[in-house]
Design a binder for these strands. Structure first.
Length: 629
DNA sequence: CTTAGGG
DNA sequence: CCCTAAG
C-alpha cells in the first residue's frame, strides 16, 4: 500500500464499464479531448484500492518534485486546485462557461480489484471548476479582482480597532498570522467563532492551520501568498496583493497550496477500510477558498479524531443527508457501479435505494490540507421538512404508529432527502411516543445525537431525545440546535443556525462573484457543502448584512458592536458588503450620496460597461478591490 | 424551482 | 427564519 501514484482523471469519463477494464486508453477517447485532465495523488493499497494520498505522502512527493514546486502543489491537491490545472490544460473559454453553469461532474474514483496491481494510472472523473475562472470571466459581473479569493476583505487590516469586541481578538491582524500566541482554549474559541462549531482537537498546529485557512483563504488571499516560517504563517509579499490587475489565479492558488503542501501539522491517516467508492459530488471550485468549512469538518473528523469506522446507521444517515444537490451527479455513477466494488453494507443498502434517485454516497473524497482523503460523506442535516403527505399520513393513523412509521421510513428511503433536523418537533414527539422503537428516520434531535455518539443505542438516543425536549430551550453544544415551545404545546426546533464568519465571508464572496440576487448560483458554488443554507437563507442573510453594513457601520470603525450573541462581523466585511451593495445598486437611497464611499471612485466607472477597474483603498489598510463590468 | 419581499 | 407570491 505504499505506492504513490499520480492519477489522471477526466471529467467526461464514463463509468459505464463499471470500472472494469478501464485503462488509460480511455484518456484518448474523443470525449476526453474537451475534458480537463486532472491529477490526483493517490496511493495503492495492497489489495489494489486507490486511496488518496496523505499529507505525508504529498510532502514526500513534493520533495521529489522540488524543482517544480508550483506544479507540484497543483498536482498534489486532490480537488481544490483541480480546477486550475484543468483550466490551464483545457484553456477553453467555452468549457469554463459551461462549467460555470454548474455542470460539475461527480468525482468518482473506483478501482478494479482485479487489475490494480500493475496499474498506476487510473481514470478519475473529476469535478470541474464551477466558477468562472478569472481568465474567462465572461459573465462580467465581477472582474479579476473578485478573482480567486478576492482581496477586499482583509481581516484585520485596520488592526487597532479590531480587537475589541471579538471576544477573541484576531491577533493575526498585523499582516502576519500570530495564532500561535493563542492558547488552546483561545484557539478553540476562535475556531468556534470562525466555523461556528466546537472542536475538540487539541492539536495547536491543526487548530491554527484550520483557523488561518478559514480566515485567510476565505477572503483574504487574493493575490497573497502565505508561507510558513517556523511556526507561524507569514503572509508573503503583501505588496503583491496590489497586483490585482494581473490574473491572479495561479499565483493565489500557489500561495494557498503552499499552505497545504508545507504544513507539517496535518498528517492525515488514511486508514479507511471501506473506501471502495469515492464519490466526489461537490462542485469543485478551483479557487481554494471555497468549501473550506466543509473541508475543515472533514479534517477535523478524519485528521484529528482519526477515522473511525462508521456505524451502519451513521453511514446511512449521512448518505442520505444533503444528497439532493448531488443526485444528478451521483446517478450516473450509481447506475454503473457494480456491486462487486462495494463491500460495505452501506453500499448494499444504498444500492437498494438507488432505484429512484440513485443516491448512494458512501464516502467522499475530500481534500484536506492538500491531500485527498476519504471520509464518510458528512454534511449537515437538511432542512426540508417531511413531505406533507407523510405528516398527514401520520396524523390520520395515530393508532397505527408503527405502520405509519414504517411508511414514513419507506417513503424517506425511497424519496430523497429525509425530513431531517428540521422536522417538526411534533413529529419527534409522535415518533418517540410511539411504540416503534426502531424508527429509522426519526427526528433530528435523535439523529444529531447519533452523530455525536454513533455507538449509542437507539433507546439511549430516545432517552436523550426526550430529555432534550424537556428543556424549553436548549442548545446542543455542537449544532446550536434550539428548541422552542410551540403553540400546540409540543416542542419545535427552531431552524436556526448562527452564521459563522466563514459563511458570511463565503456569502460575500459569492455575491461579489455572482452578484446579489443569484442566490441559487451562490448556493451551488459557495455553499455546496452547507446543506443547511438555502438560497433563501443566503438572500436573507445578505439582506441582514446590508442592513448591518449601512446601519451603524460608518460611525464606529472596527467591529460593529452587536449583541453578545452573534459573532460580530468584522468591519472589513461590512465594508465589502457596502461596496458590493453599491455595485448592485442596493444602497439605500438616503445613503447613496457618497458619504459611505470615501475612497471610492464613483460607481459610474463600474457601470460604464467598459472593462474598468475601480479600486478602493481603505485608509491605512491595503485594501483593494477591482471590479470589472 | 428561483427570487423577492413581508412577516 | 418562515411563508408566499410571482416569474
Amino acid at each position: 500500500m505504499e505506492t504513490v501514484v499520480g492519477v489522471v482523471g477526466s471529467d467526461e469519463e464514463k463509468i459505464e464499464e463499471t470500472g472494469v477494464n478501464r485503462n488509460s486508453s480511455a484518456l484518448y477517447s474523443p470525449k476526453q479531448i474537451a475534458s480537463p485532465v486532472v491529477y490526483k495523488l493517490v496511493r495503492v493499497e495492497v489489495d489494489g484500492r486507490l486511496v488518496p494520498a496523505t499529507d505525508d505522502e504529498v510532502m514526500k512527493v513534493e520533495d521529489f518534485l522540488e524543482h517544480d514546486k508550483t506544479e507540484m502543489c497543483v498536482i498534489a491537491d486532490t480537488g481544490q486546485s483541480v480546477g486550475c490545472i484543468s483550466l490551464e490544460r483545457s484553456s477553453s473559454g467555452k468549457l469554463q462557461l459551461e462549467c460555470s453553469k454548474g455542470g460539475s461532474q461527480s468525482d468518482n474514483m473506483k478501482t478494479d480489484p482485479g487489475k490494480l496491481n500493475a496499474r498506476v494510472e487510473e481514470i478519475v472523473p473529476s469535478s470541474v471548476p464551477s466558477l468562472d475562472d478569472n481568465h474567462n470571466n465572461l459573465s462580467g459581473t465581477v472582474g479579476e479582482c473578485s478573482g480567486p479569493l478576492d482581496g477586499p476583505i482583509e481581516i484585520g487590516s485596520s488592526a487597532s480597532s479590531v480587537c475589541t469586541s471579538l471576544r477573541l481578538d484576531f491577533s493575526m491582524l498585523q499582516g502576519e498570522l500570530c495564532l500561535d500566541k493563542l492558547s488552546i482554549r483561545e484557539l478553540h474559541e476562535l475556531f468556534r467563532v470562525t466555523f461556528g462549531r466546537e472542536t475538540t482537537v487539541k492539536d495547536k498546529q491543526w487548530l491554527k492551520r484550520r483557523i488561518a485557512m478559514g480566515l485567510t483563504n476565505s477572503c483574504d488571499v487574493s493575490t497573497t501568498s502565505f508561507i510558513i516560517k517556523d511556526d507561524r504563517w507569514v503572509k508573503k509579499d503583501e505588496e503583491e496583493s496590489c497586483k490585482i490587475v494581473d490574473p491572479p489565479t495561479k499565483e493565489s492558488t500557489v500561495g494557498a497550496m503552499n499552505i497545504n503542501c508545507n504544513d507539517p501539522s496535518t498528517a492525515q491517516n488514511n486508514q479507511n477500510e471501506e473506501n471502495h467508492i469515492v464519490s466526489e459530488k461537490r462542485p469543485r471550485d478551483h479557487n481554494v477558498e471555497y468549501d473550506f468549512a466543509n473541508e475543515d469538518l472533514q479534517a477535523e473528523q478524519s485528521g484529528a479524531k482519526r477515522i473511525r469506522k462508521p456505524t451502519r446507521r451513521y453511514i446511512e444517515e449521512l448518505s442520505e443527508v444533503d444528497s439532493r444537490d448531488y443526485n444528478q451527479r451521483m446517478s450516473s455513477a450509481s447506475k454503473n457501479t457494480g456491486l462487486a466494488q462495494m463491500s460495505s453494507k452501506s453500499c448494499v443498502r444504498s444500492d437498494r435505494n438507488s432505484s429512484s434517485e440513485g443516491r448512494r454516497v458512501v464516502t467522499r473524497l475530500d481534500s484536506i490540507g492538500g491531500s485527498g482523503i476519504q471520509v464518510p460523506y458528512v454534511s449537515r442535516v437538511r432542512r426540508s421538512r417531511p413531505r406533507k403527505n407523510i405528516m398527514s399520513l401520520m396524523k390520520f393513523h395515530p393508532a397505527g404508529m408503527d405502520m405509519a412509521a414504517e411508511l414514513v421510513n419507506k417513503a424517506l428511503e425511497v424519496h430523497g432527502p429525509q425530513p431531517d433536523s428540521e422536522s417538526d418537533a411534533s413529529d419527534c414527539v409522535m415518533k418517540s411516543r410511539s411504540a416503534t422503537r426502531r424508527i429509522r428516520q426519526p427526528c433530528i434531535a435523535e439523529r444529531e445525537k447519533d452523530k455525536q455518539y454513533p455507538v449509542m443505542g437507539i433507546t439511549e438516543l430516545e432517552q436523550d431525545l426526550t430529555a432534550k425536549q424537556a428543556d424549553s430551550c436548549s442548545y446542543t453544544s455542537d449544532d446550536n440546535i434550539v428548541t422552542v415551545p410551540t403553540a400546540k404545546g409540543g416542542m419545535r426546533r427552531k431552524h436556526h443556525r448562527a452564521w459563522t464568519l466563514v459563511e458570511v465571508m463565503k456569502l460575500v464572496e459569492g455575491v461579489s462573484r455572482c452578484g446579489a440576487g443569484r442566490w441559487s448560483e451562490i448556493k451551488r458554488l459557495a455553499f455546496a457543502s452547507y446543506s443547511y443554507r438555502t438560497s433563501v437563507d443566503l438572500k436573507d442573510k445578505w439582506r441582514n448584512l446590508l442592513k448591518a453594513s449601512f446601519a451603524q457601520a460608518p460611525v464606529d470603525e472596527g467591529f460593529n458592536s452587536r449583541k453578545h450573541g452573534s459573532a460580530p462581523i468584522p468591519e472589513q466585511i461590512l465594508v465589502r458588503v457596502r461596496e458590493l451593495a453599491e455595485l448592485n445598486a442596493q444602497v439605500p437611497p438616503n445613503l447613496s450620496s457618497g458619504k459611505l464611499t470615501v475612497g471610492t471612485r464613483s460607481v459610474q466607472d463600474a457601470s460604464s460597461g467598459v472593462t474598468q477597474m475601480f479600486m478602493i483603498l481603505k485608509e491605512t489598510s491595503f485594501f483593494f478591490m477591482v471590479h470589472l463590468k
